[in-house]
Simulated assay, not measured.
Amino acid sequence: MNRNCFRQACAALAMLFAACLAPAPAWAEGGWPSRPIRIVVPYPPGTGPDVMARLVTEGMAKELKTAFVVENKAGANAIIGTSEVVKSPADGYTFLLVDRLTLTVNPLLYQPLPFDPRKDLVSVSNIADVNLYLVASAQVPANDFRSFIAYVKAHPGEVPFGTGGVGSVMHLNMELLQAGTGVQFLHVPYKALAEVIPAMLGGQVVATSGGVEALLPHVQKGSLKLLAVGASARTPVAPNVPTITEAGGSDMLLSTSYSLHAKAGTPAEILARMNAALAKVLAAPDLQAWASARGLRAGASKPAELDAQIAVDAERVGKLVRERGIKVQ
């Protein structure tokens, strides 16, 4: 062997030896997870996404054999918490559990955003579908959707409708109802459904839309009335409440879901393992029963299925925002 060939052979061996000594990537078999995983919830403690995150992570910790930490980063219609995830390393140790519709609404209403959900986040899985109900106070002299709309038409601009703020799904539902029926509500923005319900019980507002879990105790006491649900079929938790299509002849209520996302660039192998673990956890009979009793439909999805739903949201919500001239003041 001449000297040049010898040098080339030595160089090749050195590169092979170095490759063997190099640390395995974080997603390699047995390498991930090697430390606790953060789930950022961009809402206050005790809200639906927060409760769901804490329940799901109990099962996820067993499936992936690592600790999970749920961190609440509330504020600015989920922008603060989402920014936290976008700024974190794409290493599979930080995820976002969010109300799916905010990923569509925020880019339409807040400019400039410190991130672009379409480019800076990737979908992992759906967590639970959330059906939203049209609800009225017992003070309103109407017990069904049509009589409620007739009442609002008789009092244009006077019936106070409480929402979680401009751009919230509750506000979007109010705009859909106005567009679909020709009525005019008096918009009263709050920060969240948790503030709207006391306002309804106190008589400051008499209508809103929201998830049945928070509303049901007051419905059972007779303080609030469920008039319609934004779903394709009646729900097991409130089977006597018609869908908005049954009640009004048109689809005038949005519903949403809790969904899990990661920073763009997170290794595909990690995303696949998270998805598989979620599918097992969400299919557990006790979790299914817990969710169903609260008006939720728990279940995992493929990332592409979640992306497709977000695209549907973007078309429908984008049209609504443009046509109704919805803006953040």
Rank of each mutant, 00 (worst) to 15 (best):
N2W: 03
F6V: 11
A12C: 05
C20H: 09
A28S: 15
G31D: 14
P33H: 13
I37A: 05
D50P: 00
V51F: 04
K65T: 06
K73E: 04
G81A: 08
S83C: 02
V85F: 08
K87H: 14
P89V: 11
T102S: 12
P107I: 09
L109P: 11
Y110W: 12
Q111K: 15
F115G: 11
P117C: 13
V122Y: 08
V124I: 15
S125A: 13
D129L: 07
L134H: 05
L134V: 06
S137Q: 01
S137L: 01
V140D: 04
P141E: 06
F148H: 02
G157K: 06
G157D: 04
G164C: 01
V169H: 01
M174I: 02
L177F: 01
Q178D: 01
G182P: 05
Q184W: 00
L186I: 01
P189G: 13
I197T: 04
I197Q: 07
G203F: 05
V206S: 10
A207M: 04
S209K: 00
A214P: 00
L215R: 03
V219K: 00
Q220P: 00
K221T: 05
S223L: 09
K225D: 00
L226W: 04
G230K: 07
A238H: 07
A247K: 11
D251C: 10
T256M: 00
H261N: 14
H261R: 10
G265P: 12
P267D: 15
L271F: 09
A279Y: 13
A279G: 14
L282M: 15
W290E: 10
R294C: 07
R294S: 11
A304D: 15
E305N: 07
D307I: 06
Q309Y: 11
L320G: 04
E323M: 11
K327G: 03
